[in-house]
């Protein structure tokens, strides 16, 4: 079953085609890497998938809901995490979890066990009553991720989640991503670290609003006769004509 379906999806701003007829599908439980240079149209596309903006033309659905007609249902069934943590620094760890569980309307009696489960999974059991502002940066990042999937959404969107994070935490963060994928949560992730592209089941590379390549990292490397994903990315993104947009 596909969690994201995009069919000839377009988004224009005036004469500028930010997203130009993209077509792809993401099955449930997949870790999908969404790569592209700055200005290639990634952010615009993600905004459409999150129900934050309407496409100019084309069809699409996220978690089974139509992106034209059901943006509100989409928002209730997805998780979202960007580089900026959405945690409240002046609240305790468990208060943040409870808050987000409330926001995503997790039933009241499930919030308690859910909180324990998250704390246990992160190894934070002793930090339950710590203020978020006192946590190290990497821990906050991991907590933000758990909070973004507190309602077990069908899909979670991660926008450069590991930017600036130290190498060890970055890897622990990816282990959380694997863990979520194992539980059936689809992960849609953008990153500027090309080694992280290797961790994805499939990777798409966007150039000038179009998806120029989409396959497993292994096949992409074969196709472009490249040593690693970094080379694949450079071969494709170098072709970009629109720059500075």
């Amino acid at each position: 079953m596909n969690v994201i379906v995009a069919e000839n999806l377009c988004k224009s701003f005036g004469s500028f085609k930010a997203v130009d007829r993209i077509t792809f599908e993401v099955p449930q439980g997949e870790i999908f890497g969404f790569l592209g240079a700055n200005g290639a149209g990634k952010t615009t596309a993600i905004r459409m998938f999150c129900g934050l903006s309407k496409p100019t033309s084309g069809k699409g659905s996220v978690a089974g809901f139509d992106i034209w007609k059901q943006p509100e249902q989409i928002k209730a069934n997805i998780g979202y995490l960007s580089q900026k943590f959405a945690l409240y620094e002046d609240l305790k760890v468990w208060e943040n979890i409870r808050l987000y569980a409330g926001i995503y309307s997790v039933p009241a009696k499930e919030i308690g066990p859910k909180t324990d489960e998250i704390l246990h999974r992160l190894g934070f059991t002793s930090e339950r009553n710590t203020l978020v502002s006192e946590l190290p940066l990497g821990w906050k990042q991991k907590l933000s991720f758990s909070v973004a999937v507190v309602h077990d959404p069908r899909i979670v969107f991660l926008d450069e989640p590991t930017s600036g994070v130290d190498p060890v935490t970055r890897r622990q963060f990816w282990e959380l991503i694997y863990d979520a994928a194992d539980r059936g949560i689809t992960v849609f992730v953008t990153t500027h670290y090309m080694d992280e592209a290797e961790y994805c089941n499939r990777v798409s590379i966007m150039v000038d609003g179009k998806i120029e390549a989409l396959d497993t990292p292994k096949k992409l490397k074969e196709q472009f006769e490249a040593k690693n994903m970094d080379e694949v990315f450079h071969q494709l993104a170098r072709k970009a004509r629109r720059n500075g947009a």
């Binding site: 450069e160 930017s163 500027h192 450079h234």
Partner: peptide
């Protein structure tokens, strides 16, 4: 930071 691999 926050810059794509090409510009980097």
């Amino acid at each position: 930071t926050g810059v794509d691999p090409i510009s980097r």
